[in-house]
Each structure stands twice: as C-alpha cells, then as structure tokens.
C-alpha cells in the first residue's frame, strides 16, 4: 500500500503526488513529514480528511524548516532513540522564496532533517504566480508573455547551490521522471546525520500547460536538455551527475504552453538561443554530456 492515499485532490497527472509516492516509498513508514502551505498541503489535507498514512504536520509557508527543527529537537529532548526520520516536503514557493529564511536557519544550526523541495517552478495552487524558481521566459499569471514581454525575465534561482553554501553534508537534485534516482537519494540523505537538501523537478500539467499524460515525458525532457541537471553534492563537492545524450532545448520548450510565445512571437528565436546557452552552461559546468 502506498503511504499517500487516493482520493487526494491533485489534478489528473499531478507531478507533486508522484514525487511524494517516490519519496515515501524510500523512507517507509518510519518518518515524520512537515509541509508548508502549497499545492501538496491543499490536495492532501482538505479538512477533515488527510491522504497521509504517516505522521504529517502543516506549518505556514515561511516556517516549515523551523517546525521540522523543533520536531527533531523535541524528539531528542524526549530521549527518543528509534530510527524515525524527520523530513520536510515543500513546494518551490515555500522553499526558495518564503521559507528560505527558516530553511537557512535549519541548515546552519545543523538539524538532523532532510528538506525536500518539489520544484514545480511557480505558485500553482494560488493560480500560477511566478516564484524564484520559475525559469527564464516562462509565462505565469504574474509574468505574462505579451507585446513587450517574453514572460519571466529573471533566471531560475540556484537553490541547491545556496543550500550547499551552508556547508551541509548532502545536497542533491532529481526528477520525478526517475523514481529509482529519487529513491536512492532519499535513502542516502536520511541515513546521513545532519541537514540535507534535495530538490526534485516536478512538472505540473495545469501550470505549465501540457496534457495530463505527459507529466513524466516533460520531466525527462527537462533533464535531457540540461535545463534541470541531476547531480549530487557531498560536503560541498559534486560527486555524481546524471550523464545525458543532450537534446536541443526546443524539444522541452515546445511541449509547454508557458513557453508557447517563444515559437510565435518575433524575437522568440533569440530568446530560445539564450535558453540554449543556459543549458550549454549547465552541461559544461557539471560535465553532463556523455
């Protein structure tokens, strides 16, 4: 039996639900989950119901990592010696924007918590507003593409690098398209003592604009174009990368409504070239090419 029950309110093809299944398959039942406000909270716990089959607590957007720190310290204070792990599962809004202060505090104080960000690259449950994790040129409701705009005009924030800058033992990225990779990394992370940070790329059919059956395909394309590189950092050093046979970024962009303007609007070609340069830089920096 899966540890996230059916009947949850995720959209058909929801990437976040797939992420949670992969994460909980790796942790097993012996886990306490803390989640901020966000899609995952909204879809999994419409009061008085809960989809969770493990202990789960909802915090505010800004204090997930602080609540998890408290849970971890309280368990120590109570002398609990069992193997129960404390993890956070939060969206990119609650992680890279609103919750980054408390996340930084948790990482810096050295709590034994694994923080997992499911990165769907915008505030989805409130209506697809851009976040710090929204990629360059993606159209959202607060960064719409139009006559003078190509959408979000800022690059995606490199949150794994920010987490790594705290000198924590383990940072990793993964994608819902690779459940075995998520499983391996979650198991590795929870076995390490101290703060760990994982970021899982999580396509969203509703927010990104693709058919609900393409969630995994879109996730795979993000990795194969080097726009979402998969790697591990241990004690500040890159220790593994997922090598790819690279595809041009158009293959990833053209299947999503949020990038549709790049293929219609004058000047779109030059923008796609900029996105390709980002992918090239990722591939070069991490040595992604086979």
């Amino acid at each position: 039996m899966k540890l996230l029950a059916p009947g949850h309110r995720g959209c058909a093809g929801c990437g976040a639900a797939i992420a949670v299944h992969s994460i909980l398959s790796a942790t097993g039942k012996d886990v306490i989950v803390v989640s901020p406000t966000g899609c995952l909270e909204v879809i999994s716990t419409p009061y008085p119901e809960s989809a969770w089959e493990v202990p789960w607590i909802h915090s505010l957007f800004e204090n997930t990592a602080a609540v998890a720190s408290g849970v971890e310290v309280a368990r120590r204070a109570l002398g609990r010696k069992d193997e129960t792990k404390v993890i956070c599962i939060g969206g990119d809004g609650g992680t890279v924007d609103i919750g980054i202060g408390s996340l930084s505090g948790m990482l810096e104080r050295g709590h034994d918590v694994t923080y997992i960000c499911y990165d769907n690259e915008a505030y989805m449950n409130t209506g697809i507003q851009r976040s710090g994790s929204t990629p360059y040129d993606a159209a959202t409701t607060t960064s719409p593409a139009g006559k003078i705009s190509f959408g979000n005009d800022r690059p995606k924030k490199n949150t794994p690098a920010i987490a790594a800058a705290h000198g924590i033992p383990y940072v990793a990225t993964s994608s819902i398209a690779y459940p075995a990779d998520i499983g391996k990394k979650v198991k590795k992370a929870i076995a390490i003592k101290g703060p760990k940070y994982l970021q899982i790329h999580t396509p969203c059919p509703t927010g990104w604009g693709f058919d609900s059956n393409r969630t995994i395909e879109v996730g795979r394309l993000a990795v194969e174009t080097a726009l979402f590189p998969i790697y591990e950092m241990e004690n500040g050093k890159i220790t593994s990368v997922k090598k790819i046979k690279r595809k041009p970024v158009e293959e990833y962009l053209k299947v999503q409504r949020r990038f549709a303007h790049l293929f219609k609007k004058e000047g779109g070609d030059a923008e796609i070239k900029k996105i390709q340069e980002t992918a090239d830089a990722n591939a070069k920096q991490l040595g992604l090419d086979m």
């Binding site: 899966k2 059916p6 093809g13 990437g15 058919d211 059956n213 395909e217």
Partner: peptide, 29 residues
Amino acid sequence: FCPEGIIHEKNDKYATDYDYCKGCGICAA
C-alpha cells in the same frame, strides 16, 4: 508513475482502481 498510487500488482499483472483513477493517462503513456 501513478499520481493516485492505485495501480497494483496481482499475479505479476497490473490493474488500476477505477474508484479513484482520474484518467490522467500517464500509465498508458
């Protein structure tokens, strides 16, 4: 890959639970 977590194995074959399947089509894809 099932977002609902309702596709289960029985005698080495898989089948879904139509009470909860939202019809996203990821399994088929």
